[in-house]
């Protein structure tokens, strides 16, 4: 294993992570809701088939805040990068992420941050599963498959 010291940003990672943790802690502490992005996303998509409830109201408000964040003039925020590459793999990846997070009831935020903070064994299993296939996929795409292609 080689650590990529050039791209490693420990302080902004830790600081940004603490803000994310603060957000999750405040939401859980004050409203007993879990700040799981995929859960919020999927619940809001199912809205047209359901009635607007108090639960959808907090989800909408959370999403509004999340979407507003990149429009703020932040001093040290890294710009969201635009991935280069073909659209087709990205669309397939989006389908897999949408399908998977719906089935598993959570993603990196719901299972990763909130679930592990609540010491949920279920979430630990989820995190180990998506970390495993995530690392496997990147290894295949970056190192194994290019070597097999002519």
């Amino acid at each position: 294993m080689n650590i990529d010291w050039q791209h490693f940003t420990p302080w902004t990672a830790l600081g940004g992570g603490m803000l994310i943790g603060l957000s999750a802690a405040l939401l859980y502490g004050l409203t007993r809701q879990v700040a799981g992005i995929s859960g919020i996303f999927h619940a809001l998509l199912a809205l047209p088939s359901r009635r607007l409830t108090a639960d959808s109201a907090w989800r909408l408000a959370f999403l509004a805040g999340l979407l507003l964040a990149p429009w703020l003039p932040l001093p040290i925020a890294a710009a969201a990068a635009n991935p280069q590459g073909a659209l087709a793999p990205l669309l397939v990846a989006g389908l897999l992420t949408g399908y998977g997070t719906w089935m598993a009831h959570g993603c990196t935020s719901g299972h990763g941050i909130c679930g592990l903070s609540r010491l949920s064994l279920r979430s630990l299993v989820a995190v180990l599963c998506f970390m495993f296939t995530g690392m496997l996929t990147v290894t295949l795409v970056r190192h194994v498959l290019p070597g097999m292609l002519p």
């Binding site: 991935p83 793999p89 990205l90 397939v92 990846a93 989006g94 389908l95 897999l96 992420t97 949408g98 399908y99 998977g100 997070t101 089935m103 598993a104 993603c107 990196t108 599963c129 998506f130 970390m131 495993f132 296939t133 995530g134 690392m135 496997l136 996929t137 990147v138 795409v141």
Partner: peptide
């Protein structure tokens, strides 16, 4: 399945 989508994108 999510991990694959995460890794690709």
């Amino acid at each position: 399945v999510f991990g694959i989508g995460w890794g690709v994108s």
